[in-house]
Amino acid sequence: MTRILAIEDDETTAREIVSELSRHGFSVEWVADGRQGLVRAVSGEFDAVTLDRMLPGVDGLTIVSVMRNAGIEAPVLMISALTEVDERVRGLRAGGDDYMTKPFASEEMAARLEVLLRRARPQARQTVLRVKDLELDLVTREVRRGGRELGLLPTEFKLLEFLMRNSGQVLTRTMIFEAIWGYHFDPGTNLIDVHLGRLRRKVDQPGLAPLIKTIRGSGYALNATS
C-alpha cells in the first residue's frame, strides 16, 4: 500500500487530507508539528509527502530541503496559505514537486498527489506511450489510433501526452493548464474545455470507444475505469 505522510498543523485541513487520501486507497500518517514532521519525513518510510508551508517548530521549506539533502526523493506536495507567486517559486526551488494554495479542493489535492506519485515511479525509458489502441510516439511525434494517424497539432500533442502519461487519473483543468501552458492563474472561461474538445474530436472519432472522459465538476481522465 502506498504510504503518505501529511504534515499539517491545521486540524480541519489535516482531517480533510487524511480522509480524501484514504478514500483514494492510501495509508496516511498525520503529523501536526514541524520538528516531528521532519523526523518522519527523513525516515524514508513514505512514498509521498503533503507538506504545509508554515508550521510550528520547523518551517515547511526547511523540511523539504533537509529531505532533499538527505537523499529522500519521495515527491512533496506543498500546501500553503501563501498565494504569492514568489512563494510558489521558493517552495519549488527548495525541492517541492508541486505547490497548492489553501483553500483547496480535496479531490484536486489527491489528483495532484497521484500525478506526483506516478511521475516518481521508476519507468522504463519509453519512446512510445500506449493506452488501449492509442499510440503516441515521442520520437517521431506521431499519434495513431488503431493504426490511423491522427495529425495532432503541437499543443494537442502535448495535451494528449500529459493525459496518456497519467491515464486513468483524474486531471483538473487547473492541472492541465499548469502542465501544458506552464501558468498558474485561473484562465477562467471554458478555455481548457475547448482544447480538450478539439483533442477529443481527433482521438475519439465516431464509432470508436471514447477514451477521453469528462469527470463532472472536476476535470478529465483518459481511459478511466469508473
Binding site: 489553501k102 483553500p103 479542493a105 480535496s106 479531490e107 463532472r216 465538476g217
Partner: peptide, 16 residues
C-alpha cells in the same frame, strides 16, 4: 469565505 466555500464545494462534489 473561500475556506467554507471550498468545503461546501467538496461536500457538493461528494454528493455528486
Amino acid at each position: 469565505l473561500r475556506t467554507p466555500l471550498t468545503r461546501l464545494r467538496a461536500l457538493l462534489y461528494r454528493v455528486r
